[in-house]
């Protein structure tokens, strides 16, 4: 239906020339693909940090009792602030602000500051996902672990977290698909990644097909990522159900 409307619209011939030019597509793709590797690299590095920082924030937030109030408050403040500020602002502030401090021991690479920005933002989101997972594990599990003599941190590490993380794999992946897309924001700092490269190509030819090529590259990453999660979850379910038959 939508396709029919688009294809029959008066501007379609012009749009088709501007966005679906086969020659432009094949000529721009290699360069954009190379630049896209930068996106993948940024994504992988940022993701590693986000998984760790997000988990740390979530665990800090789940500490009980009045003793840990300051730590809990800090974790909440962090999550509130970095979920509140638009990603693009954090990247601008860090990317242009931090190097301007002219501190010799601070890195000046825009990629580094872009990654720091993404880690700060996404760790806030991911900590909330982890926290939901931790809260979803019934308190009787912790009680059972503690009653056996496990300490609070042992119970968290061996009993609560493994169950929590398993439950939040799909929403975690959802955030990572968001992160994969947001790696394009680092282009704003001047790093030549796929989106920036496609802008350069478009500016040279006045043909928008490189944008389409970039979009396809992003989708080409996110779809396998989504299928991979499905596979992981299915495998876990199968393993648990078939173990009895094998045992």
């Amino acid at each position: 239906m939508i396709v029919v409307v688009i294809v029959n619209s008066p501007g379609w011939p012009a749009v088709r020339r501007a966005f679906f030019d086969g020659h432009e597509f094949t000529s721009s793709l290699p360069e954009i693909s190379r630049a896209f590797l930068t996106n993948v690299e940024i994504f992988c590095i940022a993701e590693g940090f986000i998984l760790v920082v997000g988990l740390a924030i979530a665990v800090m937030r789940s500490l009980p009792g009045p003793v840990f109030f300051p730590i809990r408050a800090l974790a909440i403040l962090y999550a509130d602030i970095f979920r509140g500020i638009p990603t693009i602002l954090v990247i601008y502030i860090l990317g242009f602000g931090a190097p301007a401090l002219q501190l010799s021991w601070l890195p000046t690479s825009t990629v580094v500051w872009g990654i720091v920005g993404l880690v700060l933002i996404y760790s806030a989101y991911v900590s909330e996902v982890y926290r939901a997972g931790i809260d979803s594990v019934h308190p009787s599990q912790d009680a059972a672990a503690r009653s056996l003599g496990l300490s609070r941190s042992q119970s968290m590490r061996h009993v609560v977290l493994p169950q929590a993380v398993r439950r939040v794999v799909p929403p975690l992946l959802n955030d990572f698909i968001g992160l994969q897309k947001d790696t394009a924001l680092i282009a704003l700092l001047g790093t030549v990644e796929a989106f920036r490269q496609s802008q350069i190509d478009v500016a040279a030819t006045f043909n928008f097909t490189p944008y389409l090529a970039t979009a396809l590259l992003f989708v080409a990453i996110t779809i396998p990522l989504a299928r991979f999660t499905d596979w992981l979850l299915n495998r876990d379910r199968r393993r648990r159900q078939s173990a009895g038959a094998l045992g």
């Binding site: 009787s140 599990q141 009680a143 059972a144 672990a145 503690r146 009653s147 056996l148 003599g149 496990l150 300490s151 061996h158 009993v159 493994p162 169950q163 398993r166 173990a243």
Partner: peptide, 29 residues
């Protein structure tokens, strides 16, 4: 923790750890 080490408790709802095998459940502590 050292007190609980000496006292075992079994609950109405079992509260086994669902992500561990029977053996791991028992050997964890």
């Amino acid at each position: 923790d050292s007190v609980r080490r000496r006292i075992g408790i079994v609950f109405q709802s079992f509260n086994l750890f669902p992500h561990m095998t029977v053996l791991r459940n028992v050997t964890l502590a």
